[in-house]
Deep mutational scan, measured.
Amino acid sequence: GCWSIEHVEQYLGTDELPKNDLITYLQKNADAAFLRHWKLTGTNKSIRKNRNCSQLIAAYKDFCEHGT
């Protein structure tokens, strides 16, 4: 299931919640338009490089609020 937004804000980028895991989750569960909008298409590695934690948190919040 979903992590809470508080959990993501607190732990994203740590061993508790690697950016990797959040990106994988969104790529698996969000639709193509969402991924394009948040620039989460492409390889996990390129996304990790190009999107910082606050951008990923914003995307995750949007996903939780509007889910697909």
Rank of each mutant, 00 (worst) to 15 (best):
A59D: 01
Q55E: 08
T24Y: 08
H37N: 11
E9V: 11
S54T: 13
P18S: 14
Y11C: 12
V8R: 01
T43I: 04
C53A: 07
I23P: 01
R36C: 06
G42S: 09
L12W: 00
L22M: 12
D62C: 14
Y11I: 06
T24C: 10
I57Q: 09
R36D: 11
S4T: 15
L26G: 00
Y25W: 13
K49G: 06
T14Q: 07
E6G: 09
H66A: 14
Q27M: 10
D21K: 15
Y11K: 15
E16Q: 15
K61G: 04
R36Y: 08
G1Q: 14
L56W: 01
K19T: 06
H37A: 14
Q10R: 13
A32F: 10
Y11S: 09
H7A: 05
G67D: 11
R51S: 10
C64P: 02
H7P: 01
G67F: 11
Q10T: 14
A33F: 05
Q10H: 10
L35C: 07
I47Q: 06
Y60W: 10
K28S: 12
L22G: 00
G1L: 11
G67I: 15
T14R: 08
E16Y: 06
L12T: 04
T24F: 07
S46D: 12
W38K: 03
C64M: 15
Y11A: 09
W3P: 04
L35A: 03
D21A: 15
D15P: 15
A32L: 11
Y25M: 07
R48C: 10
H66Q: 12
L22C: 04
P18L: 05
E65L: 12
G1D: 09
L40K: 03
L56C: 00
W3S: 02
G13R: 01
K28G: 10
S4M: 07
E9P: 00
Y60C: 02
E65I: 10
D15S: 14
A58F: 03
N52T: 11
Y25K: 02
V8H: 01
L35N: 03
K28W: 06
H66C: 14
Q55T: 12
Y60V: 00
A30K: 00
T24V: 12
E6Q: 06
L17W: 00
H66N: 15
D31R: 06
R48A: 11
T43D: 12
I5R: 05
H66W: 12
L40F: 05
G67L: 15
H66R: 14
E6I: 04
T24E: 13
N44Q: 10
I23V: 11
A59M: 08
N20G: 14
D31A: 07
C64A: 12
R48D: 07
T14Y: 04
G67P: 08
L35F: 02
C2Y: 15
L22R: 01
T41Y: 11
N20C: 14
K45G: 07
N52P: 09
K39Q: 10
T43W: 08
L17Y: 02
E6W: 05
I5M: 11
D21G: 08
I23K: 01
I47H: 06
K61R: 13
E65R: 13
D62P: 01
T14E: 04
A33G: 10
Y60E: 00
E65Q: 14
Q27R: 13
I23M: 03
E65S: 14
H7L: 06
A58K: 12
Q10D: 09
A32T: 11
I5E: 05
T24R: 13
D62R: 05
L22F: 07
G42A: 07
T41F: 10
L40S: 01
I5G: 03
A59I: 14
H7Q: 14
I57E: 04
N52V: 04
F34V: 02
T41P: 03
T14N: 03
L17C: 04
N20D: 09
L17K: 01
Q10M: 12
C64W: 10
A58I: 04
S54H: 11
G42Q: 07
S46R: 15
I57H: 03
G42N: 04
R36E: 10
K28N: 14
K39F: 04
G13T: 02
K39Y: 05
V8W: 00
H7Y: 13
L22A: 02
H7C: 04
G1W: 06
S4V: 03
G42F: 04
T68M: 15
F63C: 02
H37L: 12
G13W: 01
S46K: 15
A58R: 11
V8K: 01
E65W: 09
T14P: 00
I23W: 03
Y11R: 11
L17E: 00
K28P: 00
E65H: 13
A58T: 10
E6Y: 04
N50G: 10
E9H: 05
V8P: 00
I47W: 04
T14G: 06
T41Q: 15
C64G: 05
N20K: 15
N50Y: 07
N50K: 15
Q55G: 06
K49C: 06
D31Y: 04
F34H: 03
D15Y: 09
R36F: 10
Q10W: 05
S4D: 10
N52A: 08
T14I: 01
K61L: 03
R51Y: 05
L12M: 04
A32C: 10
N20V: 15
I47E: 10
F63R: 01
D15G: 13
Y11G: 03
E65K: 15
G1T: 12
D62W: 11
S4Q: 06
T41H: 12
L12E: 01
N50S: 12
W38T: 02
T24L: 14
C64Y: 13
F34E: 01
E65F: 13
L22P: 00
D62T: 07
S46L: 08
G42R: 07
H66I: 11
C2Q: 14
E16N: 15
